[in-house]
């Protein structure tokens, strides 16, 4: 596990939140969040509307200050100015200056970023193809997204924060932008944290998952591990309530239809008895956790914040 993470020091964790909370007025948008995201991960950030996805991304992008707790990127607190150069952020509506030309937009990237990589940005724009002389206001949604991504990747970020990058795009553009995103992230070794409502996108693009509900973390870790920790069990409905063999495990969600009992469980050892146990899909696990607020959250070993020092973790 954690094979993608480069070894050593604070750089092992692209993001680490400790007791992170954000309150708007009286409402907590994010509350007591502690998790880690290993460097190199492509992480999907999922949850219902208002669950705190955008708030988390805003906190990481320094658009918002946390009310409680702390967030660090690659071992540096997000309050330090230097993290700005290390991460790129793409807001959901992909704001750009409509009266700038494409060329001027790229120049802005060059002017505002000391590590600007013009070749990367121009390659992304030209493979669009997005004409350099066009005004941004005249571009299509797909072209705008491409330009915004060019700006983000031209910055050569170590961490890329994307707020619903595929929303409002037609299917063709979605496919194109997803391909572009994956290719560039792989080439540059960028850690990506992207929020999405499209579970299919998350399943195909991401290797990590961070699920939030009601401002709290519900699931965090490598998707493989998360799925492996769960079983979907099916069997005959013989006794009232949850059968004892199943109750040994953590039952995330269960239902009975006629004489059949189905449950999503978090395994505590092997499943015994006359049950058919299959590995659930990402969607089944995710929906199970979002629908059952009572189930304790699950963070895989990689995603848990430990109080030990970095040296011990690396060893």
């Amino acid at each position: 596990m954690g094979g993608t993470a480069p070894p050593g020091g604070g750089d092992r964790w692209a993001m680490e939140a400790r007791g992170l909370g954000k309150r708007y007025g009286r409402k907590w948008a994010l509350r007591d969040c502690s998790f880690r995201l290993p460097a190199g991960a492509i992480c999907g950030l999922v949850g219902s509307n208002g669950a705190g996805k955008s708030t988390l991304l805003s906190l990481a992008a320094r658009l918002t200050r946390p009310t409680t707790g702390g967030l660090s990127l690659f071992g540096t607190a997000v309050t330090e100015d230097e993290v700005l150069a290390r991460c790129a952020y793409l807001a959901q509506d992909k704001p750009l200056f409509p009266r700038f030309t494409v060329e001027e937009t790229l120049r802005m990237g060059a002017e505002l970023n000391p590590r600007w990589d013009r070749a990367v940005a121009e390659r992304i724009v030209r493979s669009g193809p997005v004409p350099m002389g066009d005004r941004v206001g005249t571009l299509s949604g797909g072209q705008r997204s491409r330009l915004a991504l060019a700006l983000a990747f031209g910055k050569r970020p170590e961490l890329l924060l994307l707020d619903e990058p595929m929303a409002e795009l037609d299917p063709l553009s979605q496919h194109e932008i997803a391909g572009l995103l994956m290719a560039e992230a792989a080439e540059q070794g960028t850690t990506v944290l992207m929020s999405s409502h499209q579970l299919a996108d998350v399943a195909t693009m991401c290797d990590h998952l961070l699920a939030v509900a009601d401002g709290r973390v519900r699931l965090a870790g490598a998707i493989d591990e998360l799925l492996d920790a769960h079983r979907l069990v099916t069997g005959a409905y013989l006794v009232d309530g949850v059968p004892p063999e199943i109750a040994r495990h953590t039952v995330v969600e269960s239902r009975t239809t006629g004489r059949q009992f189905t449950a999503l469980i978090r395994r505590q050892g092997p499943v015994e008895g006359d049950w058919r146990a299959t590995e659930p899909s990402l969607e089944e696990v995710l929906l199970g956790y979002l629908r059952s607020p009572g189930t304790p959250p699950l963070l895989t070993a990689d995603a848990q914040v430990t109080d030990e020092h970095e040296g011990e973790v690396a060893a």
Binding site: A61, A91, P95, F97, L112
Partner: peptide, 15 residues
Amino acid sequence: ERGTLKLVTTQSMTR
């Protein structure tokens, strides 16, 4: 209004 404040302040320079 345009949201470009989010664009500009998430480049490498501080708000």
